[in-house]
Design a protein around this nucleic acid. Structure first.
Lengths: 360, 360
DNA sequence: TTGAAAGCGGTACCAA
DNA sequence: TTGGTACCGCTTTCAA
């Protein structure tokens, strides 16, 4: 029985150098492929390569990183555990794009999974240590992003991009985001093209940057197209119900199309309209400003969020920052596809609707 | 507009030391929480901590790793891309367990995604560089494990465990594996308990360690229970069909129960039996030696592979190796649950079956 | 062309 | 108790 003596120590460049009878720096040059600066004779190169092979030398990435600052390691920090939710498709497509692109450009991924504490929330700083530092830079994502940590990370000069817009006063955070603003505007344009003139916006009532983006797109398009905005006063749902007074107004034809932040708002809307004898889209058109699963019960007119592409671009943007340190980087907007479903149609030619559109 | 001056250089211990008016090693001690050996006066500790706070100093994990050899980074190397297949549930449960456990013990995960070449297959050694070295150790998994790389990794003394049994002659690879051998034996025992005396084994015909494990469990149980093994001569399927002669033998009552390596073998088996007028499980019982999705068309008697637990144990085993270097580590077997479905029953009391069981 | 040597940012040993 | 100092393994500048 042969006892495999566990190698006491991995071979280093100095070992290679000794075996090849050259200096350590010569070895380093050969490994670095330094062809220009110091032209090393064929013979020497070969001797060194033989020694490398004989010893089974492999460079130590940690030492390299310490020296050069680069690792080809890209961090992925999620503010919640990845895999449990990956299944629900929230992280999934982002990660697919991230992995795909990282692989293409020959980088590895560090999944930051260590929690900060017992609350399950993951923090990047835990007792003063920035774990992310092992990687050259990081992509952050997650619904529960901690603004304070983002700000500190930025202040520390750590290179990172965030998937989804995050704004922290006084701080410039580079984000890669679906272009909700344009998408919302496109949907309003479509409604306007169909002849709608009085439309409403159903807000999720969640204070989050992406909803602000949607809202902005909606408002600018409404103004540009000269439409009338008739939205409910209170956002979101109250006790699971929408603003009744507003629904009544919709029922009288005050509004012929509604744009909703989310699918979970569109359902009660349709219900409330049905209660008042209205049908979607015959009486009222409804569009949802988020992605809706293709197997959802209702085929809403909605958006398709290019998650995978966002993941890919996050990697590209991050690597760009690493290659060009100091350069300010603008946010990256990724276009959403507007998906035509079965909930948007031309407005009814009802009595209360003026027909200016066809008067021209 | 305030220009945020991008910090030229992150603060180091020496900066802290200078500011606090102490030596660098004092700073290191305070950070390392070295309370016993060198008792530093309260006042000094406070001065140092103040300096740390003022400078926003965070320790550099790369330097630490270089010095101590530990990183709290655990590698995950899959021989194929993770996320595309994660969805199909192959990697998924393993990763869930891995992430979960890593998080619990405060480690981060490195996903090795960089490919070795253009073939899409991932290699751990790419032009002589062992990427895995950035992490303290690694968990490897994947159907297409490269034996040569495993052997080299082991020879290099790199700490790793493999999920799923992998055997390379002359090399001791630590594996964490579902205990297929016991599970197969348990299934044979169950059949024997029900009164079956002549049973067959349908091999996948794939040369892989896990199938050998199943086979071994089957054979030892068959011998122990004094059963007669009547298996088809040729393994697997030929042109999508099972061994016809053997099926005919089964039809005559030569075999009352069949154990199959995989679900994709069980279906043609059931079809072949149906063609011959036999019904499962009335005439022939069938058990599958792998996990079957709960929503599969047939509720096979099968196994439940404890993937998540395997993932967790892989992490524990790996960390054990890191903490106790040099200690040989035995393979870890994880028990499978035998799931009772609708395809196993007592054998028919037919003419060709002797009734020794009830004769006693 | 080649080698010596100075770091990169820590840790830990040894003296003082 | 504290500080000096020798590494960890590699890259890169500067001399020779």
């Amino acid at each position: 029985m042969t006892t495999t003596p566990r190698r006491a120590r991995a071979p280093r460049q100095s070992d290679v150098a000794r075996l090849a009878g050259v200096s350590q720096s010569a070895v380093s040059r050969v490994i670095g492929g330094d062809t220009d600066a110091a032209r090393i004779p064929e013979a020497t190169v070969r001797r060194i390569q033989d020694a490398i092979k004989e010893l089974g030398y492999v460079p130590n990435p940690t030492a390299r990183k310490l020296r050069t600052g680069r690792n080809r390691l890209l961090g992925v920090h999620t503010f919640e555990a990845v895999f449990p939710r990956a299944r629900e498709d929230f992280y999934f497509e982002f990660l697919l794009g991230i992995e795909e692109r990282a692989e293409e450009i020959d980088h590895d991924l560090v999944l930051f999974t260590s929690t900060g504490g017992s609350d399950g929330r993951r923090r990047v700083y835990r007792d003063g240590v920035n774990r992310l530092n092992v990687a050259d830079g990081a992509v952050l994502l997650g619904v529960a992003a901690d603004r304070a940590e983002l700000a500190r990370l930025e202040a520390d000069g750590y290179p990172f991009v965030h998937i989804g817009r995050r704004e922290v006063p006084g701080t410039r955070i580079t984000c890669v985001v679906p272009d909700y603003e344009s998408a919302a505007a496109a949907i309003v344009d479509r409604l306007a093209d169909l002849g709608h003139e009085r439309i409403g916006y159903l807000r999720a009532g969640i204070e989050e940057e992406s909803y602000a983006d949607r809202r902005r797109g909606y408002e600018s398009a409404v103004a540009r197209r000269g439409l009338r905005d008739v939205s409910p006063a209170s956002p979101g749902l109250e006790e699971g119900r929408l603003d009744a007074a507003w629904l009544d107004a919709v029922a009288t034809g005050e509004v012929t199309a509604v744009v909703a932040d989310a699918e979970w708002l569109a359902h009660p809307l349709a219900d409330g309209l049905a209660d008042r004898g209205l049908t979607v889209p015959r009486d009222v058109s409804v569009a949802v400003l988020e992605g809706v699963a293709p197997d959802a019960p209702v085929r809403w007119d909605c958006l398709q969020i290019p998650r995978r592409e966002v993941g890919r671009l996050a990697i590209d943007t991050l690597v760009g920052m690493l290659d060009e340190p100091g350069e300010p980087v603008a946010d990256v907007l990724v276009e959403c596809v507007v998906v035509e479903g079965e909930t948007v149609a031309a407005p009814p030619a009802g009595p209360s609707g003026d027909t200016r559109g066809s008067t021209v």
